[in-house]
Amino acid sequence: MTFQYGLFMFFAALVVYGAVCVITLRNPVHAVLHLVLTFFASAGLWMLLEAEFLAIILVLVYVGAVMVLFLFVVMMLDINVSETREGFVSYVPVGFLIGLVLLLQIRIVVGSEFFGLDQYPLPVPRPADYSNTAELGYLIYTVYVYPFEIAAVILLVAIIAAISLTMRRRPESRKQMPDKQVKVKADERLKLIKMDAVVSVDKKDQGDDV
C-alpha cells in the first residue's frame, strides 16, 4: 500500500462519512458542517487526481463562500427538529425509490463500460511544473468557448432572476436611502420659529387658576 493509496482511502472514507452524516444528523447546522467536511475531502481526492485547480476552486467557492451563506441561513432559521421529522417513516419508501433511480442513472452514465480502465488508461503523471490552470483555461476559451459562454449566460439569468425576486416593493419595510440622507439640507428638517422669551399671560386667566 503506497502513501497515495492510504491518502485516497482516508479522503474517501471522510467523504462517505460526511455525506452520510449530512442526511442523518438531526441538527441542520451540524449537517451543513458535515457537508463542508465532504467538500473538503472531495477537494483532497481531486488533488490526488492532479486536478489542483479544481480542488482549490472547490474549497474557495463552495467551502469558502457558498457553504458560509448556507450556514448563515441555516443558523438564522429557527427549525423545529421534531416537526421536520414528522412523517419520516411514511416517506422512507419514496426516498428509497428515488435514491434507487438516481443510483441507476449514475450507473448508466458513469459505468465501467464508459469509464473503465480499458476506456481510460491511467493518466500520465505530470511533472511538478505542469500548470493545469493554464491548460484548463486554454481548453475553456478555445475548444469549449460556446458551452462556456452559454453556461455563463444561464448563471447570469439565474442571478438576475433571484435578485429581481427579492426586489419586490414592500411598503411596510423601512429602509435607509443614503443618497437622500446625504443631500438633505438643514432647512428641510429644521424649522426655526422666532418668539419672545417670555409669553405675556392674561392676568385674569392666571387669577382663575390660583
Binding site: E52, F53, V68, S131
Partner: peptide, 17 residues
C-alpha cells in the same frame, strides 16, 4: 506550488468558519 495565489485565497476564505 503553481496555484499559490489560489491556495492563499482558499485558505484565507476558510477563516470565517
Amino acid at each position: 506550488v503553481n496555484a499559490g495565489l489560489l491556495y492563499v485565497l482558499a485558505m484565507t476564505s476558510l477563516g470565517v468558519y
